[in-house]
Amino acid sequence: MDTILTINNLTKKFGYLTAVKDLSFTINKGNVYGILGPNGSGKSTTLGIVLNVVNKTSGDFHWFDGNTTTHDALKKVGAIIERPNFYPYMSAYQNLKLVCKIKGVDYSKIDEKLEIVGLMERKDSKFQTYSLGMKQRLAIASALLNDPEILILDEPTNGLDPQGIHQIRSLIKQIASQGTTILLASHLLDEVEKVCTHVVVLRKGEKLYSGRVDEMISSHGYLELKAENTDGLVQFLEAKKMFGKIKIEDELITAFLDEPMDAKDVNKLMFENGIVLTHLVKRKESLEEQFLQLTDNN
């Protein structure tokens, strides 16, 4: 599989603050990657380092095969890491002409990219007449002008209304389906679950999880249990390797499964070991619960 970006033990310190700590992950061609974490988790700093706008403290990263300089590699990258900076009195088309001049791209690309982002009908309208969602879509068109191999987006739906959010997410999926690799930073679980194939979860600059989104969700779920003898039930659960983390709230016990097991088999196992359950429900974890579990107690 073609590698787009490799990050090795990347660390960034701002004085006493460590914004990114010993971070490593790889981005391969043709996927949609999410860097997920709350504000202040190091997402934007990581993007800034690989885009050469923030200096790293230690570690390294390389684009593509590792033999390309970052300066040359960035010619094959499209990125929006700040609010789009277009001229308000100029039309969308005129603004993109300026970008083409800077990037050395033929003007023929402009209509093609405006079509992709759904702004062809408004290409002669002044930028200042655009809604926030349209401005963001124009920024994406601008980032696509050089036909990048990877598109990097920092919080692409921030501040948008529900319709604008839906449009941007649909657009990201559409661009990805054409073969462009996408890396987006987001603090929204919902966004990553709906848009991304892979996720890197950060907290305080440290990686908590890296892998496929569907594998992160495909835990074996958890059980909600009550029994006449609560202490006996807890002791039994703690002694069996198929049960992982156990939480106790009043009489309700939550046991996370480390192995696949259905409710019928759990009930049978308990009964055979002299434990009479008064309550048994098996539930599937959402990505949100997985995320909360990852970021809990760290």
Rank of each mutant, 00 (worst) to 15 (best):
residue 3 T to Q: 10
residue 11 T to G: 11
residue 15 G to F: 05
residue 16 Y to H: 13
residue 17 L to A: 13
residue 20 V to M: 13
residue 21 K to R: 14
residue 31 N to K: 15
residue 35 I to W: 02
residue 38 P to Q: 09
residue 40 G to L: 06
residue 41 S to D: 10
residue 44 S to W: 00
residue 45 T to G: 06
residue 47 L to H: 01
residue 47 L to W: 01
residue 53 V to C: 03
residue 54 V to W: 01
residue 54 V to S: 01
residue 61 F to D: 13
residue 62 H to M: 06
residue 62 H to T: 08
residue 64 F to Y: 06
residue 67 N to H: 09
residue 70 T to H: 03
residue 72 D to S: 09
residue 74 L to G: 01
residue 85 N to P: 02
residue 86 F to V: 10
residue 91 S to N: 06
residue 92 A to C: 08
residue 94 Q to H: 13
residue 98 L to S: 02
residue 104 G to Y: 00
residue 112 E to L: 08
residue 117 V to S: 02
residue 119 L to A: 04
residue 119 L to W: 04
residue 136 Q to K: 01
residue 139 A to I: 02
residue 142 S to F: 02
residue 147 D to T: 00
residue 149 E to T: 00
residue 157 T to W: 01
residue 157 T to N: 07
residue 163 Q to H: 10
residue 166 H to R: 11
residue 168 I to C: 11
residue 172 I to C: 04
residue 191 E to H: 05
residue 197 T to M: 04
residue 207 K to A: 12
residue 209 Y to V: 04
residue 217 I to M: 14
residue 218 S to R: 14
residue 219 S to Q: 13
residue 228 E to N: 15
residue 231 D to R: 15
residue 238 E to Q: 15
residue 243 F to S: 07
residue 245 K to E: 13
residue 248 I to W: 06
residue 252 L to D: 09
residue 253 I to M: 13
residue 262 D to F: 06
residue 264 K to G: 02
residue 265 D to K: 12
residue 274 G to W: 00
residue 278 T to W: 08
residue 280 L to Q: 10
residue 295 T to E: 10
